[in-house]
Nucleic acid binder design. Structure first.
Length: 240
RNA sequence: UACUCGUGC
């Protein structure tokens, strides 16, 4: 019994992760209970060093073993799948949250919305936003940023602007990140003037544009060939 | 306590 647990730890120490998993299975087969901390340790290891597929596979095994499911764990795996563009898998993990009797959190939604917008599935993003409404989960700045990025990418800049207004209406304060996403959208679609306009709005609202914001605008101006204006902006930046 | 967001290189 203890021998198994020790063996599992030793395998893990030396990076023989799959051996460690085999060990876990062996322990179970013998009907010996594996402490949850031990499960968590191995699972963490898979999250950090292995694929989301592997982590998920193992996670389902330990859930089966009685390990208490938690939303954070699912969120992390969703995020890993999204980073690899495997939205389909991210979705499956998302659905698994409810199957296990938990409720997706605002982070769960944000992660999935962000993943969908990354691959250009804007409609899906908004479907999810409606789902949030139904579940009484309030969209936050992360949610709006993902939606705005999705719309920009899709060339729907006017809709993106409208979402920014919606934020103010709902009492949410758009931050630098949101503004920079929007400014970037305008610049990337050849409308640097609109980007500069948003920049002006930031100042008026009392926000302090940061390096990301300035880089975005300066890059846009340079690409357009307006070196004058770019220089002006750099000076302005230096004064702040 | 731990999970999600923006520019360039």
């Amino acid at each position: 019994n203890f021998v198994y647990h020790e063996l599992m730890n030793v395998y893990l120490e030396f990076g023989f992760v799959s051996d460690s998993i085999q060990c876990f299975r062996l322990i179970r087969k013998h009907g010996i209970a594996m402490p949850f901390r031990q499960c968590a340790r191995l699972f963490d290891h898979l999250l950090k060093n292995r694929t989301p597929e592997m982590a998920l596979g193992f996670y389902l095994e330990i859930l089966d073993h009685g390990y208490p499911p938690n939303v954070y764990d699912f969120n992390i795996m969703m995020h890993m799948f999204c980073k690899e563009g495997k939205i389909k898998d991210a979705r499956l993990v998302f659905e698994e949250i409810r199957k296990r009797g938990l409720k997706p959190s605002v982070v769960s939604f944000n992660t999935l919305i962000n993943g969908c917008c990354r691959v250009g599935e804007v409609e899906e993003c908004f479907r999810l936003k409606e789902e949030m409404d139904k579940e009484k989960i309030l969209p936050d700045a992360y949610t709006y940023n993902a939606l705005i990025k999705g719309l920009c990418k899709d060339g729907r800049l006017e809709d993106a602007d409208r979402l920014l207004d919606e934020m103010w209406e709902r009492g949410l304060v758009p931050n630098n990140i949101i503004y920079t996403s929007l400014i970037n959208g305008h610049c990337k679609h050849g409308r640097v003037e609109l980007g500069l306009e948003m920049y002006g709005q930031m100042l008026k609202k009392g926000l302090r544009p940061d390096l990301f914001t300035y880089n975005t605008l300066v890059y846009g101006l340079c690409k357009k060939g307006d070196i004058q204006q770019a220089n002006k902006l750099v000076e302005e930046m230096a004064c702040r």
